[in-house]
Nucleic acid binder design. Structure first.
Lengths: 343, 343
DNA sequence: TTGTACGCGTTATCAT
DNA sequence: ATGATAACGCGTACAA
C-alpha cells in the first residue's frame, strides 16, 4: 500500500546512516567515492537511499565544498539572438556537469549589478557575461567576481577572457556587399548609441564607404534601438528625404524587418526599389517575406565556446585569452542591384 | 596561458565582527533586524561591511534558514511564447523578493526530471511548471516537490494549484470566426499528438465544426509540431488535395506562418484564396506580411498570476485553486470571406 | 574498510 | 543592547 505521507522533515544523511547502522561518513563516501568502500556496503547504501528518498542537501554541500556547480549567464535581453547564445552555453555547461542560470538585464546596469551581487554571494562558480551594457558597472564588481568570460564583444578597457566576433569587419562586409551590387546611396540604421556592438557595426559601415570612396554626404546614419518599431521610424525618416537611399544596412535583423515594413507600406518593393541588409541572421530572417539578406553570427558557438573556456578556467586548465569566431554573409532576397545605377 | 585573477578568500561575518570588536551575532542582527540594535551600532556595522566588501554567504543562509529565495520556472522550450510567460513570472517574483531560475526541457520528460531532482535537493522553495509534457513524469516526483503551481494547462489527473486558459474554448472561437466568415472547408494543423495543449485546441476545432453542422469529411486535421517547418509540410499536403480547404486554422502562430509561406509560394494569396488563422499572438503575428489573425493568450498575466499564487502558498496565505484567464480573438489580415462561398 | 569529530558561515536561543 | 553558543547537513582529516 502506497504511503502518500509527505515527510515534514526532508531525509538527511543521518537518517540513512541510522537506517543501516552505519556512520554518516560511510554513507557520504558510498555516494561520492564508492571506490573506497566494499561494493556490498555501497549497494546497501544505495538501496537505503532509494527507500528513504534521500537527496543530498545542495546548500550544505555548497557550504562545505565552497562550490556550487552553477554558472550564471547574463544577457542583455531575452531576444532570440541572445537565447541562441544561451543555448550554446547551456550545452557546454551540461557536458561539463554544470547547471546554468540565466539572468537578463533589460540593458539596465542596475540589474547587471544585482546579478553580480548574487554571484559574489557565492551563488555561482563562474559567470558568462554577454555584451555588458556599461563597462563601469562591471569594474566596481570585478574584485569580487568569480571567473568570468565575456561573450560577443570585449569589455572596453578591461581584460577578460573573451569569445567574440569582429563586428566591425562583419559590418564592413555587409556594406561592401551593397556597394558591389552597385549602390552608392547607402544608409545605416544604427543600434543604441551606447552599445559597443552598435558602435562597432557603425564603424564597419563607415569604413566600407570610405574604402569605396563614397562621399560621406551620400551615406548617412539614422539612430535605432535594435527593435522593429525603431527600424520603422528610421526608415520612414529616410524615405521622406529628397533623395532617399537605394539601400539600407540595418544594424540588426529586427530593424531591417521594420524598414521593410515601411518600404512596403509606401508601395515600394524590396529589393527592386530599396535593398535592405540585416545583421545577426535571426530565425525571422529566413521565414520573412521576402527572406532577409543578413550576416550570420555563430551565436550557438559563441555561447558554447565561451562556456568551454570557462570550464577550462574553473578546472585550472589552459585556454586562449581572446577567441574571435568568423561571420558569414548571407544573401537572400532583400538585396539586389539598384534599378537606376547612379555613378 | 593567462592566469585568472585568483579570488581572495571572501569576507565573512567573522571578519566584520573582528574589525569592529563585536560579536558575529550583533553583526548578523545589524544586517537582518536593525530595529533591535542601537542606531549607532547599526551604522558602524554598515560602514565596516562596505569597507570590507562583506556579502552574506547565501549557501550558509540557505542551510540555516532552510529556504533559498529561489523559484524554478520550468518551460518546455525557449520560444517567445513561453518567454513571455516567464517574464510575467519573473516580475511577480521580483516584487516578492524571490529570484527565478528558468529551466527548459525541450519537451523532454528526462530533462524535466533533472529539474525536479534539483529542486528536491533544496535548490528552490517552489516551482512554476509550465505545460508539462508528461503527466507521469511529475507523479513520480510529486512527493518530494516543493509547492508547485501549474501554468497554462492543468496536469491531467493531478491536483495542483493552476493558472490556465481554456484552450478548447479559444480554439472553438477561432474556428467559429472562420465559419462565420462563410468558410466550410476548414482544415486544422495540430500540435504534437501528446501535447495536452494541442489536444484541447483540436477538440475546440472539432466542437466548432460540429456545432455548425459541418460534416466531418469537410474538415480535417493534419499533424504538425508547433514549428514553421511542420506548418509548411502540413499546408503542402492540404494544397495537394483535390479539394483544398478555403481556410486553415493552425494550432499556433509558427505553423500558421509556415502555412502562409507555402500558400504564397504556390502563387496563391492570403486571405483571398486561403484564410489562415493562428493561435498565441506571438510578436511575429503583428509584424508578418500579412499580419496574422490569431488568438491572444494573456501570456504575461499567466506567468504573473501563477507566481503571485505561488507566493501566497509559500507565505501560507489563501489562494484560488484553479484560475482561468480569458483569451481574445484578434482579426488581422489573414482571414476573410471565401471568394466563392460554398453552401 | 569504517567510525569519530570538526568546521564551513549563518541565524536563533539563550544569557548577560 | 550585546555576547556566547548551538544548531543547520555535509565532507573529510585522522583514528581505529
Amino acid at each position: 500500500m502506497p504511503r502518500p505521507s509527505q515527510p515534514l522533515r526532508p531525509t538527511t544523511i543521518k537518517d540513512v546512516a541510522r537506517e543501516l547502522d552505519l556512520s554518516v561518513a560511510t554513507v557520504s563516501r558510498a555516494l561520492t567515492k564508492p571506490k573506497l568502500l566494499r561494493p556490498e556496503t555501497v549497494a546497501r547504501v544505495r538501496a537505503a537511499v532509494e527507500k528513504l528518498g534521500y537527496r543530498p542537501n545542495l546548500a550544505a554541500q555548497n557550504l562545505k565544498l565552497g562550490t556550487t556547480g552553477i554558472v550564471y549567464v547574463i544577457v542583455p535581453s531575452l531576444s532570440p539572438f541572445f537565447l541562441e547564445i544561451f543555448r550554446g552555453a547551456e550545452r557546454a555547461a551540461q557536458e561539463g556537469g554544470y547547471s546554468v542560470v540565466m539572468g537578463h538585464t533589460d540593458r539596465h546596469p542596475d540589474r547587471e549589478g544585482e546579478f553580480f551581487d548574487q554571484v559574489s554571494c557565492g551563488r555561482a562558480d563562474g559567470v558568462l557575461l554577454v555584451s555588458t551594457a556599461e563597462a563601469e558597472a562591471i569594474v566596481n564588481h570585478k574584485r569580487r567576481l568569480p571567473p568570468t568570460v565575456v561573450v560577443l564583444e570585449a569589455v572596453e578597457g578591461q581584460i577578460f577572457p573573451t569569445v567574440r566576433v569582429d563586428h566591425k569587419k562583419a559590418a564592413f562586409e555587409a556594406t561592401n556587399h551593397l556597394i558591389e551590387l552597385g549602390h552608392r546611396r547607402i544608409a545605416h540604421i544604427t543600434g543604441p548609441a551606447r552599445s559597443p556592438m552598435a558602435i562597432h557595426r557603425r564603424e564597419g559601415y563607415l569604413a566600407a564607404l570610405a574604402a569605396a570612396g563614397i562621399r560621406s554626404g551620400e551615406g548617412s546614419c539614422v539612430p535605432g534601438e535594435f527593435t522593429v518599431a525603431s527600424g520603422e521610424v528610421a526608415m520612414a525618416s529616410l524615405l521622406s528625404r529628397p533623395k532617399p537611399p537605394t539601400a539600407v544596412f540595418a544594424a540588426n535583423d529586427e530593424m531591417a524587418i521594420g524598414a521593410i515594413r515601411v518600404i512596403k507600406d509606401r508601395g515600394l518593393r524590396v529589393p527592386q526599389d530599396v535593398s535592405v541588409m540585416g545583421f545577426d541572421d535571426q530565425r525571422i530572417a529566413t521565414i520573412y517575406d521576402p527572406p532577409l539578406s543578413t550576416v550570420r553570427l555563430p551565436t550557438f558557438d559563441l555561447g558554447y565556446s565561451a562556456m568551454v573556456k570557462l570550464r577550462c578556467i574553473l578546472a585550472k586548465e589552459s585556454y586562449e585569452m581572446d577567441v574571435v569566431l568568423s561571420t558569414t554573409l548571407i544573401q537572400r532576397a532583400t538585396t539586389a542591384a539598384p534599378r537606376i545605377p547612379d555613378a
